[in-house]
Design a protein around this nucleic acid. Structure first.
Length: 405
RNA sequence: GGCGGCGUACCCAAGUGGCUAAGGGAGAGGUCUGCAAAACCUUUAUGCAGCGGUUCAAAUCCGCUCGCCGCCUCCA
């Protein structure tokens, strides 16, 4: 039985789907700059989640949004003298290329925030009608956090009531204060030509409402799994829950999964600190995409992973070993009946994957199988079985083991 | 200050109450070799941040202390 750690309960829970199609929503990239490999740690994990669910026989619908309108994107476009669309199109294209390089399956839907303004308006109106939002003096529509008594349930934060209003995607000094956040931001000069004329007035969507609108449109008001990095727990996912409660009276997702950060020099790899590598950076240094992916998978997603070049080298060696083992087995003409080893390995593999998708241990099991196999002369039947096992594991981890290394 | 995570050898790391604490990497010694590399062999924690407690038994459970990190309105 598959168990997943649910941030909401802070417990591992048995995965029981709501219906015959498992709905998964993942917060995708903000497409105003290159995604870094810390971002990809999350996307790689999500890919394995989807692949594993399919392996277990579930039908899955995965939705991954592209945040293509927000403060930073607007500011960046302005600075670079581009339109918002030119900027986000460019980075979206790069993102899709990176996904392909890392052998990540495309989501079933890649909704863009700018293409969902009518849905966004619709959901804001519901929230207003239900009494969970109000209009500020300048026309900005704010979510009234004081009306939502389950605020803080996901992040487990005890927040202090306050009167602050947050209009832009700002970050301030007043921490631990409950603030009302913008659902619809009225037009400001620095928005330039980024605005929509709507029945809520001239303006643009708030950052948080985009996800509520898109997940609801593509997966309904209640779906199975919502995934993202831990830094999204608060405020982003907390607000998504609040918004969906305001509009539809329920928490949109049964399970909330959060990946821990990729660290560098003991610190979180982040855009704002500038201590990151993009996929492109590492490819340029000569590292192969699958080696990078191997490193990203080498630790359970619930644990922090410290990025080092030494670790990357080791990942490369381990991956090479597995490739060698597969090549050897392909040509094996021995007489040993060693089918059992393959079956045992697969069993162990499933066991660790069932335990909250521990890809780090799963990789170790693959390495052990490779080590075992390298010293053997398996017969034809065993060879076929071993190759099948590797193929199955590869279909879940997506490491392109059967392509030239 | 609140919530959470982590601390096992020089480095990474497994370990989830019970045989002498996995495995890699690096280092040291060796086999082989004209030398080197590769490969292979040997070796490296009376001890798991510290202190106290529970127990027949603790790296593992409990309490306290120290240190590092994450979140507490940019962020995967």
């Amino acid at each position: 039985m598959l168990k997943l750690f649910n941030t909401l309960s802070r417990k591992k829970e048995e995965f029981q789907p709501l219906s015959d199609v498992v709905g998964i929503y993942t917060c995708g990239p903000s497409v105003y700059q290159y995604a870094h490999i810390g971002n990809f740690r999350t996307f790689v994990f999500e890919d394995v989640l989807v692949r594993y669910l399919r392996f277990r026989g579930f039908r899955v619908k995965r939705v991954m949004n592209l945040t293509d309108v927000e403060d930073k994107a607007i500011a960046t476009a302005r600075k670079e003298g581009k339109t918002l669309q030119e900027l986000t199109e460019y980075y979206s294209r790069i993102f899709f290329e990176d996904m392909e390089k890392l052998n990540l399956l495309p989501a079933d839907v890649f909704p863009r925030a700018t293409e969902h303004v009518p849905e966004i308006i619709g959901i804001i109106k519901k929230i207003v009608d239900n009494g969970y939002a109000y209009r500020g003096k300048d026309g900005t529509v704010y979510y009234d956090v004081s009306r939502f008594n389950r605020w803080g349930e996901l992040s487990h934060l005890k927040l202090v009531p306050g009167k602050k209003k947050i209009k832009r995607d700002e970050w301030g000094e007043d921490s631990a204060i409950i603030s009302d956040f913008a659902l619809w931001k009225s037009y400001e000069k620095e928005d330039g030509n980024v605005f929509w004329e709507t029945e809520l007035g001239k303006g643009r969507p708030g950052w948080h409402i985009e996800c509520s609108a898109m997940c609801t449109k593509h997966l309904g008001t209640r779906f199975d799994i919502h995934v993202g990095g831990v830094d999204n727990i608060f405020p982003h996912h907390e607000t998504v829950m609040a918004q969906n409660f305001g509009a539809f009276g329920e928490n949109p997702s049964k399970y909330w999964l959060h990946t821990r950060h990729l660290m560098i020099d003991g610190r979180k790899m982040s855009k704002s600190m500038g201590n990151f590598y993009t996929l492109h950076d590492l490819l340029e240094k000569g590292y192969r995409p699958m080696v990078i992916k191997y490193l990203l998978l080498s630790m359970s997603y619930r644990r922090r992973l410290n990025f080092t070049f030494h670790g990357l080298e080791e990942a490369g060696e381990n991956l090479e070993k597995i490739h060698c083992a597969i090549e050897r087995i392909k040509r094996a003409k021995g007489v040993d009946d060693v089918e059992k080893i393959a079956m045992k390995a697969l069993k162990k593999f499933e066991k660790v994957m069932n335990d909250n998708l521990d890809t780090g241990k799963a990789l170790k099991i693959m390495e052990e199988l490779s080590d075992a196999v390298i010293g053997m002369e398996p017969d034809k039947g065993s060879s076929r079985k071993i190759l099948e096992t590797f193929r199955t594991m590869d279909s879940i981890l997506g490491l392109s083991l059967f392509k030239p290394f």
